[in-house]
């Protein structure tokens, strides 16, 4: 399987993304509304999860996605039902974007029987075969070979589906990531590596962890094209995602998208975030917020007015409120659940 020296096309000089302009008819008002709605759902869901954690109703680790919503919502807009999605432990947003039920996700966070894993997985370990969401993985970088394997299965089955494999800047230096990239390029597997660069792997900045900080170039050794994307802009994400999906579905192998994004909260709930300044966080919050950004666009383009925005707010608040309610009233798993699902058919 000798590999021709295929020159990466879109990399090195950051490709000029074809940004949908205001009124660009490639994005319909309904699409914009739906992106806004999903991003807001993730934001409000995560805030509520943080609150329930603060009340002691959610235990263990809890990694919130607040600030990064545009990444998963923009990417989800580029794929079809059977395309696989897999990510790390910062996974609540991905599940909601995949269409998983907020109640089932929240109830898993509270460790109740109504959760997606019947309370046996927790925040970092949830799955939905129905929605092609393959987890929720707690070991940094482990989802990258697994996501590559999902792409392998797609190719083996001869279907046209892709695997969206998300990981953070923290995983980007894991050895297994490069082992997987090598095989993906060697075997031209339809996998898109989405690096959610939120600038800190726990408390260590990218600059202090990576010898080269242009993470989109980290596939160059394997000839994998990559591009850097404004991960705070859902439309920029979508546009880049479309290029990547087209590349992968066209049988050209893997593609890397480095999403420049930011998490407003700490790495996990117990992180005081002393490694960055309040000014830095505020700057992103006030100037770059993906939800505010899209909201102004919706108002400017007169797609929605204040009253309609308020109605969406109320609708989301109800979904999240119902989820929180369900998550507190769903019973804890029956003790007999201790022994189920250890082995199939045993």
């Amino acid at each position: 399987m000798a590999k021709p020296a295929n020159k990466p096309k879109a990399q090195s000089s950051v490709a000029k993304p074809k940004m949908p302009k205001a009124g660009d008819n490639s994005v319909s008002p309904d699409e914009l509304k739906s992106y806004y709605r999903t991003m807001l759902l993730i934001r409000r869901f995560e805030e509520r999860a943080g609150q329930l954690y603060g009340m002691g109703l959610i235990g263990g680790f809890c990694h919130l996605y607040i600030g990064q919503e545009a990444v998963v919502v923009g990417m989800q807009a580029t794929i079809e039902d059977k395309d696989a999605v897999i990510t790390s432990y910062r996974d609540h947003g991905h599940m909601l974007a995949c269409g998983m039920d907020a109640k089932g996700v929240m109830a898993e966070l509270t460790g109740r029987s109504g959760g997606y894993s019947h309370g046996k997985g927790g925040s970092m370990h949830m799955f939905s075969r129905e929605k092609s969401f393959y987890g929720g993985h707690g070991i940094v970088g482990a989802q990258v070979p697994i996501g590559t394997g999902l792409a392998f299965a797609h190719k083996y089955h001869g279907n046209k589906n892709v695997s969206l494999t998300y990981f953070g800047d923290g995983s980007a230096n894991q050895g297994q990531v490069y082992e997987a990239m090598n095989m993906a390029a060697l075997w031209k597997l339809p996998v898109i590596y989405i690096i959610e660069n939120n600038r800190y792997g726990m408390g260590t900045s990218v600059e202090r962890a990576s010898a080269t900080t242009e993470l989109y170039k980290h596939g160059e050794a394997f000839g994998i094209p990559g591009e850097r994307v404004d991960g705070m802009d859902v439309l920029a994400v979508r546009a880049a995602g479309e290029r990547a999906v087209e590349h992968a579905k066209g049988g050209n192998g893997p593609y890397i998208l480095e999403m420049q994004t930011y998490r407003y909260r700490g790495h996990s709930m117990s992180d005081p975030a002393k490694y960055r300044t309040k000014e830095e966080v505020d700057k992103y919050r006030n100037e770059r917020d993906p939800i505010d950004h899209l909201k102004s666009r919706l108002l400017q383009q007169k797609i929605l007015d204040d009253a309609q925005l308020k109605a969406i707010d109320a609708e989301i608040r109800k979904i999240v409120g119902d989820a929180a309610e369900f998550a507190q009233h769903s019973p804890e798993p029956d003790p007999s659940e201790l022994w189920t699902d250890v082995l199939v058919g045993a």
Binding site: A142, P145, I146, G149, L150, F152, A153, E179, A180
Partner: peptide, 11 residues
């Protein structure tokens, strides 16, 4: 890891 992913993917 790739094998595990392939197994999750139905192989």
């Amino acid at each position: 890891g790739l094998g595990v992913g392939a197994a999750f993917g139905g192989l």
